[in-house]
Design a protein around this nucleic acid. Structure first.
Length: 290
DNA sequence: AAACCGTGGTA
DNA sequence: TTACCAAGGTT
């Protein structure tokens, strides 16, 4: 591709100089460490993941170690990272790895995709970052970099379109190790420079070939990105209920859950949804983590 | 396909 | 203070 000489070397050189040193990167990091980080980083910033990731890897250094625990311990150790179903799914994925993959994190996209909580992005990320495979890694950072540099748009579409995936595929270097570095490099560029708001174009390694910058950084004219409300939602109630159970050593009487939210109907609905999700178990009038 | 699923930092 | 948003996945 023509664009390769314009984009690849500047991005790879920039990454070589500016990449963050993160615990799940580098030679001493296990694939399991990569996998745990990918689950935690789904919609949660790096800064908040760092301490919890360290605790998890110390406590559960292998999939088998986590699988041997009660799932509720994973939920408890998840702390306040948010979206606690990820903890449950990571525990389920560890169990599947033990039962179906001999305790070793699978090394192919297809097998990874079959694990609970692993979608397209996470499967590609583990295969690429963990095993150096050649995969198209499309996360929000990569998509934003490509949208700006190549399409001249401030933001990508809500969903990944066929043309977008084909474009990303065409940019992937042939050599697997180089492709893996390219994937993490573009992602890092999006995370540190080509950010959603206030991008640092003046320090961007590909500013000279960025379509969006060349066009004068036109404002996003696509559909408004929905502002997710939180206050007063079931999610907030679920969060409060689960916080009580996380902070309790064992089962708690329902009365202790009733005090977290005054609207009984919504409170009951939220509690039932937690039970339905497997995040909470009921034993008579007592509630606990699974 | 769109809604739902937590939490906390930042402008 | 509100709004945005941060390495998505599931239904």
């Amino acid at each position: 591709m023509i664009v390769m000489s314009d984009l690849h070397n500047p991005v790879l050189d920039w990454f070589d100089e500016h990449a963050r040193e993160l615990p799940w990167r580098g030679n001493d990091a296990s694939v399991w460490s990569v996998m745990v980080s990918e689950f935690m980083l789904q919609q949660t910033p790096v800064a908040r993941v760092l301490p919890v990731h360290a605790q998890w890897l110390e406590r559960w250094p292998t999939p088998a170690a986590l699988a041997a625990e009660e799932p509720g311990e994973a939920v408890r150790a998840w702390g306040r990272l948010g979206y606690p179903r990820r903890a449950l799914r990571l525990h389920a994925a560890a169990t599947a790895i033990v039962e179906q993959h001999g305790g070793v994190v699978p090394d192919t996209y297809a097998e990874l995709l079959g694990l609970p909580g692993v979608g397209d992005y996470t499967a590609a990320a583990i295969a690429s970052f963990g095993y150096g495979r050649r995969e198209v890694v499309l996360d929000t950072n990569v998509r934003r970099v490509f949208a700006r540099a190549l399409s001249g748009q401030e933001f990508p579409h809500t969903s990944v379109r066929k043309a977008e995936r084909e474009l990303a595929t065409s940019l992937l270097p042939d050599d697997p190790p180089t492709a893996a570095t390219w994937a993490v490099a573009v992602m890092e560029l999006g995370a540190l420079v080509c950010t959603a708001s206030s991008p640092g174009c003046e320090r961007c390694p590909i500013q000279d070939s960025c379509a969006w910058l060349a066009a004068g950084k036109p404002a996003w004219d696509g559909p408004a990105r929905k502002a997710q409300t939180y206050a007063g939602t079931d999610r907030q109630v679920r969060g409060r209920l689960l916080a009580v159970l996380r902070d309790a050593p064992g089962a708690v009487p329902k009365a202790r859950l009733d005090v977290v939210w005054s609207l009984a109907e919504q409170r009951e609905r939220a509690l039932e949804s937690l039970v339905a999700d497997g995040l909470v178990v009921r034993d008579g009038a007592l509630y606990a983590l699974p």
